[in-house]
């Protein structure tokens, strides 16, 4: 019974699929945007590869770029102010850094909303109180939170770096429907070519205490390195622990193999 019934059921599925094959057009609808979209450019960082380390000076510069430029519109919700200690700041410096922020609070006497100086235990305060406020201030576009941005986009850091440095005039042959509308900016690394964010960086915008270069590319690279850290602060530790575990297990596997051969030595199999 099973086999004849199975045969009929199978035949049903196969005929339904054959009909589907016959009726599905073989060509894709052309997507004009594809032709103009560019692959993200590779940004080499010290946190890449199997033996990564943090370039703390670079991360500190990236933090400065975030604070002076990006933080005007973009939040960094998941990162605590205390976390910047990992970028090589002392406890005192972290406290001073935290004091430089005003975080939402309530007035202890009246209960009215108020602000107070930041503490290391606070998270980076968001530039807008809520999504509606953020959209209202940005032409109805929502600036995404940046804590996880290098993990939340295909091509990660390469994409972020390419986007920051990729603003340009639209090519002459760009079809009309792909031209940036009012308030949008052409960037071939963005999925649909036009995004609401204006070019955020200009040459010389941020002055670094260590005199490092501050052209758009350098600043974009620094802030991208910083955002790799915010997305995965345990990355370097993770790789180190990984190597220890890997080496330990390699030795274990060799011993286990020898033990296995030893136990089976008198048995053909």
């Amino acid at each position: 019974m099973v086999r004849p019934l199975g045969f009929l059921v199978g035949l049903g599925f196969i005929v339904a699929l054959l009909c589907a094959i016959v009726t599905t057009p073989l060509s894709n609808e052309p997507q004009a945007a594809h032709a103009f979209h560019k692959e993200a450019r590779h940004l080499p960082l010290s946190s890449d590869g199997l033996f990564p380390h943090w370039d703390k000076a670079k991360l500190q510069r990236g933090l400065q770029v975030y604070k002076e430029v990006c933080s005007a519109c973009h939040s960094l919700d998941h990162v605590a102010l205390r976390d910047v200690a990992e970028l090589g700041y002392t406890e005192g410096q972290v406290k001073t850094f935290a004091k430089g922020f005003q975080v939402p609070s309530i007035n202890p006497d009246t209960g009215e909303p108020a602000t107070r100086d930041g503490l290391p235990s606070d998270h980076f305060p968001a530039p807008y109180a809520n999504e509606v406020a953020a959209r209202a201030a940005n032409n109805n576009a929502l600036p995404p939170d940046l804590s996880l941005i290098t993990k939340a986009r295909e091509d990660g850091k390469d994409y972020v770096y390419s986007l920051l440095t990729g603003f340009q005039n639209p090519p002459a042959n760009l079809p009309k429907e792909l031209q940036p509308a009012t308030g949008l900016h052409y960037n071939p690394y963005f999925a649909n070519l036009n995004l609401a964010m204006a070019p955020p960086l200009t040459d010389g915008q941020v002055t670094f205490a260590d005199g490092s270069p501050n052209d758009v590319k350098a600043m974009a690279s620094d802030v991208t390195a910083f955002l790799v850290w915010t997305a995965e602060p345990k990355l370097v530790q993770r790789m180190r622990v990984g190597w220890a575990a890997f080496l330990f297990l390699s030795i274990f596997s060799i011993l286990a193999y020898l033990s296995y051969r030893n136990i089976w030595a008198d048995k053909e199999h």
């Binding site: 011993l255 020898l258 030893n262």
Partner: peptide, 10 residues
């Protein structure tokens, strides 16, 4: 010794 070493490692 090999068996003991493997079990100890585990």
């Amino acid at each position: 010794f090999i068996n003991i070493a493997a079990v100890s490692f585990a």
